[in-house]
Design a protein around this nucleic acid. Sequence first.
RNA 1: GGGGCCGUAGUCUAGCCUGGCUAGGAUGCAGGGCUUGGGCCCCUGUGGUCCCGGGUUCAAAUCCCGGCGGCCCCA
Length: 483
Amino acid sequence: MGSVPRDRWSSDFSRWFDWVIEEAEVYDYGRYPVKGMGVWRPYGFQIRRRILDIVRELHDSRGHEEVLFPLLIPEDLLRREAEHIKGFEGEVYWVTHGGVDPLDVKLALRPTSETNITYYENLWIKSYKQLPKKYYQIVSVFRYETKATRPMIRLREVTTFKEAHTVHDSFEDSERQVLEAIEIYRELFERLGIPYIISRRPEWDKFAGALYTIAFDTIMPDGKLLQIGTAHNLGQNFTKALDFKIQLADGTLEYPWQTSYGVSDRVVAALIAVHGDDRGLKLPPTIAPIQVVIIPIPGGSEEDKARVLRESRSIEEALKSSGVRVVVDEREDLRPGAKYYYWEARGVPVRIDVGLEEVETGMLTIARRDTLEKLKIPRGRLLEELRALFKDIEENLKEMAWNFARSMITRVDTIEEAEKWASEKKGLLEIPWCGREECARTVEEKLEVKTIGTPWPSEDAPRGKCPLCGAPAITIVRYAKTY
RNA sequence: GGGGCCGUAGUCUAGCCUGGCUAGGAUGCAGGGCUUGGGCCCCUGUGGUCCCGGGUUCAAAUCCCGGCGGCCCCA
């Protein structure tokens, strides 16, 4: 299984990624005349939409309500929470003019929506009886990135920001909500077959304005970590800043507690990256805009040609009426081999070849994209076999992705081992830690990595000593190169 | 934040150092022929603000300055 090479995929990931999003017509990046902005093309848009379908389902089924807030946030509102604006100040886009006239109050293109959503929660929510309240929206957010931008991974317009914002009548309930957020994201990534590592971000790298941040990261083919989801407990920071109080059961007034959690375009990027190979995309059948492609292989005579085409269309009809997303590639100017490469690049999970042989024997030739394995299936059992095959492909993609991710995690006890890791291996490094920022910063400098955080949930019995200061370890800590 | 490389047709690219002829090729696209079980072949055609602005020059894709954009490496 897994016979397609992954040389370019792993050793030249950046170029591979640029190539695949163009070849598969997912996302057009680098040609739009504004830095850090790209275009979702129809095929990519469908992939994105199917992912969002799952995102919506997971939120809706747990009592979240979808809303839509304005894009513009007035400066004074964005500045209300001091830590928040400190964290975002350097990367906010400002609208400063209306027509030719300067505006009295500058308007920010939202970098995130805690402030303006809290502003409305304050208007709408008066009592603990209305809580918990869970809103979410899926919108564009803007960040004036100063680092190098990358398609889908570091954008100035993040076009697919799902941000959830919740309100609670106690700290305990907000803690419970963080757990629910983590469960939602777990399930999302499970369904997409994207491996994930959950960490509590270090104090110095938490969301601006949060008490703490729990983050999901995945490991990209080049061994760098990509943050693909975060959940924040905001405590009362924003409700205090906006003077948002509710009445509790005992009649007292109190600032409610909040959480927020988000995922972005990066989920699509991760899906493409973790499942790809040197031929292109490999899409899980639930996400694939086209699940089955039928390639007619015409025989010599006009009559044979017609028979093959008739059979192809008849299979198409049968699958379509059972809800399978299927197309017949009837293009006459391409030979079958060229069509194989074409659809493989687009990640279509299953291909059916229909030639004279298939017409005459009633046995269909099926090729699966994940392994390129070919199977013979009697036409009469096609549908049930396909359903089983979809499931198998989905599980196989997930397993291959997890195997790769696991192979990129290394745990060591000494700084010598860590340095050895840094010189030859990529991925995630785990080391015992005393908990002091100073020691982590030293490791960051020595190994040229970033602190990812500590395991979530935390491990029971951390062993050993901090290899830097020798103090007893209170946890392990993770390091990696990141996007 | 610092350093480096780069920008020529939808895509990839030659030409740039050493300024000068109609900016050449591959791929794609359109038409025709031939073919069809892993990227066929042949013919014809199509497609260019040489990233943008300024400067030097008789003459700029080429040299200089600035901007915009992309990639890589280091903090």
